[in-house]
C-alpha cells in the first residue's frame, strides 16, 4: 500500500501547527481590533451583570499579562476544548460546534454522493462525444452549474417546493422524532435513524435533506463534469487505449476499465478541493432552509456578538478543512499506484 503511517503522522503534526496558527490569528483579531478585548470576549454584555462579565473575561484572557503569555493561555483554551459558554446558545462552544458540524457534514456528504458520480458520468459522456453538439451542451451545463449562486438556487428550490405543499424546513419533524423515540447518536440523522431502525424518521430526514442537498450538489456536479471531461478526453488519446482498441478489446471495457480508471485520481483530488469550497455553500443553503448547522451559527453569532463561537468556528472549520485535504490525499495514494506518500 503506497501510504505510510509516517506520512500520516507528519501530516497530523503539520495540521496541528496550522490550527495553532489559526487560533493565534483569531486571538490577534480580538486583541488588535478597536475596542476593549475583554468586552468583546464577553460578547459586549449589557445590563446589571455586565461589569462582572467583562471582569471575568479579563481574567480568562489574562489581559494584564504580556502578549505572548496571553496567546499561550488562549491556545491552551482552544486546544483543551474549553472556550467557555457560547453566548448565543448558553452551552459550551465546542459542543454547539460538534452538533452543528454533524448536520453540515450530513448535508455535504449527501450532496457529494449525488454530485460527484453524476458529474463524472456526464463528463465521460461528453468526452466520448467530444466535438459533437452534445459535448458543447454538457460543457455549457457544467459551467452553468458551477457558476450558479448556491443561495439563490436554494431559494429557488425552496420557493418552488412550497406551492406543492412541500415544506422542507428544518432537519426532521420534531413531533415525529419525539413520538417514535428518536435520539441523535452521531448527529448524522440519516445514520442515527438507520441505527435505531427508525424508518419513519429516516424517510422524513431524507425528504427534508434532499432539496438543500440538490442545491449544494450543483457545484460538485459542474466541477466534476468539466474536470472529468478533460481528464477522460486526455485518457482516450493515450497509447494504451489505442493499443487496446487495436487488440479488439470491447469498447465497454476500454472506456470503463482503462480510460475511466485513469481519471479517478484526478477526480478524487478535485472533489477534495471542491468539498472544502462547498462548506460555504452548505452554510448558506442551511440558512435558507432553516436547518441546524454551521450556517445557522454564523447568523446567530452576529446578533449577540458571540466572539467565542466565532473563534471556535474558525478553529473547527480549519481543522475540518485540513482533515478533508488529508483524506483526499490519502485516497489518491490508495487508488493511484504512482502516488507514494
Amino acid at each position: 500500500m503506497p501510504l505510510s503511517l509516517g506520512y500520516l503522522a507528519r501530516r497530523a503534526v503539520w495540521s496541528l501547527a496550522v490550527v495553532v496558527g489559526v487560533a493565534v490569528l483569531s486571538y490577534l483579531v480580538i486583541i488588535l481590533s478597536p475596542g476593549d478585548p475583554a468586552a468583546k470576549w464577553a460578547g459586549h454584555p449589557r445590563g446589571p451583570g455586565a461589569a462582572r462579565a467583562v471582569e471575568l473575561a479579563r481574567g480568562e484572557l489574562g489581559l494584564d499579562l504580556p502578549i505572548p503569555v496571553q496567546v499561550l493561555n488562549f491556545l491552551r483554551m482552544v486546544l483543551t476544548g474549553d472556550l467557555g459558554l457560547s453566548i448565543a446558545y448558553r452551552q459550551p462552544v465546542y459542543s454547539v460546534l460538534w452538533r452543528n458540524l454533524a448536520a453540515t457534514l450530513e448535508l455535504l456528504l449527501v450532496a457529494y454522493a449525488i454530485g460527484v458520480p453524476l458529474g463524472s458520468l456526464l463528463g465521460v459522456l461528453a468526452a466520448l462525444n467530444r466535438g459533437r453538439r452534445i459535448d458543447g451542451a454538457l460543457q455549457a451545463a457544467g459551467t452553468l452549474l458551477a457558476n450558479t449562486p448556491t443561495f439563490w438556487l436554494g431559494l429557488a428550490i425552496f420557493a418552488s417546493l412550497l406551492p406543492l405543499g412541500f415544506a422542507a424546513y428544518g432537519r426532521v419533524s420534531t413531533g415525529l422524532a419525539l413520538s417514535t423515540g428518536f435520539r441523535p447518536i452521531t448527529g448524522l440523522y440519516l445514520l442515527d435513524a438507520l441505527l435505531q431502525l427508525n424508518f419513519p424518521v429516516f424517510f422524513d430526514a431524507l425528504v427534508r435533506l434532499l432539496p438543500p442537498a440538490l442545491a449544494v450538489a450543483a457545484y460538485p456536479t459542474g466541477v466534476c463534469l468539466r474536470v472529468g471531461r478533460a481528464l477522460m478526453a486526455d485518457a482516450l488519446l493515450e497509447d494504451y487505449v489505442r493499443a487496446a482498441a487495436a487488440w479488439g478489446v470491447t469498447r465497454r471495457i476500454i472506456v470503463w476499465r482503462y480510460a475511466f480508471r485513469a481519471t479517478l485520481p484526478g477526480l478524487v483530488q478535485v472533489s477534495g478541493l471542491a468539498f472544502a469550497y462547498s462548506l460555504v455553500d452548505a452554510m448558506v443553503v442551511e440558512y435558507v432552509f432553516g436547518r441546524e448547522g454551521l450556517g445557522r451559527l454564523l447568523y446567530d453569532a452576529v446578533s449577540v456578538s458571540d466572539f467565542r463561537l466565532a473563534v471556535g468556528l474558525l478553529v473547527v472549520v480549519a481543522a475540518f478543512y485540513l482533515v478533508v485535504n488529508t483524506l483526499a490525499d490519502a485516497a489518491q495514494a490508495l487508488i493511484d499506484p504512482r502516488v507514494r506518500l
Partner: peptide
Amino acid sequence: TYATEVFLALPAIVVALALRLAL
C-alpha cells in the same frame, strides 16, 4: 509556506464573521 497554509484553511465566510464582530 506556513502562512499560506494557515490562510488557506480559512473560508472567507467564517473570516467575515470574525471581522464583522471585530470591525
